[in-house]
Computed example of a mutant assay.
Amino acid sequence: MWWPTSPMCCCNVSAPDLDPRIPVVLCDARDRASCKTVLMTLLEHLIEQSVSRTAR
């Protein structure tokens, strides 16, 4: 996904059809910190999902 301010941006960064509990994270794959943030967000989301399923 391109950054919205990038001249090459051709995507719509809003996601109105997604469940609000699903994280939408922008990533610049050329930037190590950006990739790390995306992976950490994914892991946190998966852990939250796992905990909520076992609590049922």
Rank of each mutant, 00 (worst) to 15 (best):
residue 14 S to P: 03
residue 2 W to T: 11
residue 12 N to D: 15
residue 50 S to G: 02
residue 27 C to R: 12
residue 4 P to K: 14
residue 48 E to C: 05
residue 31 D to A: 00
residue 1 M to N: 10
residue 34 S to C: 04
residue 28 D to G: 01
residue 37 T to W: 02
residue 42 L to W: 06
residue 33 A to V: 01
residue 37 T to A: 11
residue 28 D to A: 09
residue 24 V to F: 09
residue 5 T to K: 15
residue 49 Q to R: 13
residue 9 C to V: 00
residue 14 S to V: 12
residue 46 L to H: 01
residue 5 T to G: 15
residue 37 T to H: 12
residue 48 E to N: 10
residue 40 M to Y: 09
residue 8 M to D: 08
residue 3 W to C: 04
residue 43 L to T: 07
residue 31 D to E: 08
residue 30 R to G: 15
residue 5 T to L: 14
residue 47 I to T: 05
residue 43 L to V: 08
residue 50 S to W: 09
residue 11 C to K: 12
residue 41 T to P: 00
residue 50 S to N: 07
residue 54 T to D: 06
residue 16 P to K: 08
residue 54 T to Q: 12
residue 9 C to A: 15
residue 36 K to A: 04
residue 27 C to W: 04
residue 6 S to I: 02
residue 56 R to W: 00
residue 37 T to D: 08
residue 34 S to R: 01
residue 27 C to N: 10
residue 29 A to M: 14
residue 10 C to W: 04
residue 22 I to P: 06
residue 52 S to I: 06
residue 46 L to D: 00
residue 49 Q to C: 13
residue 14 S to W: 08
residue 16 P to A: 09
residue 28 D to K: 13
residue 23 P to C: 04
residue 5 T to Y: 13
residue 26 L to C: 03
residue 27 C to K: 09
residue 11 C to L: 14
residue 45 H to G: 01
residue 34 S to Q: 02
residue 55 A to M: 08
residue 35 C to Y: 03
residue 42 L to R: 08
residue 38 V to S: 07
residue 18 L to A: 14
residue 8 M to W: 10
residue 41 T to F: 00
residue 20 P to M: 03
residue 55 A to V: 04
residue 54 T to R: 13
residue 18 L to E: 11
residue 13 V to P: 14
residue 47 I to S: 02
residue 18 L to C: 13
residue 30 R to K: 07
residue 2 W to R: 12
residue 30 R to C: 06
residue 49 Q to Y: 03
residue 20 P to E: 10
residue 12 N to E: 14
residue 10 C to S: 13
residue 21 R to Q: 14
residue 5 T to C: 09
residue 36 K to R: 07
residue 4 P to T: 11
residue 43 L to Y: 09
residue 3 W to S: 11
residue 48 E to W: 03
residue 7 P to F: 05
residue 48 E to L: 08
residue 47 I to G: 01
residue 52 S to V: 11
residue 12 N to R: 14
residue 6 S to V: 02
residue 17 D to C: 07
residue 46 L to K: 03
residue 37 T to R: 09
residue 39 L to Q: 09
residue 45 H to M: 02
residue 34 S to W: 04
residue 2 W to N: 14
residue 5 T to S: 15
residue 20 P to L: 08
residue 29 A to G: 12
residue 33 A to C: 00
residue 18 L to W: 12
residue 5 T to D: 15
residue 50 S to L: 10
residue 3 W to G: 08
residue 26 L to W: 15
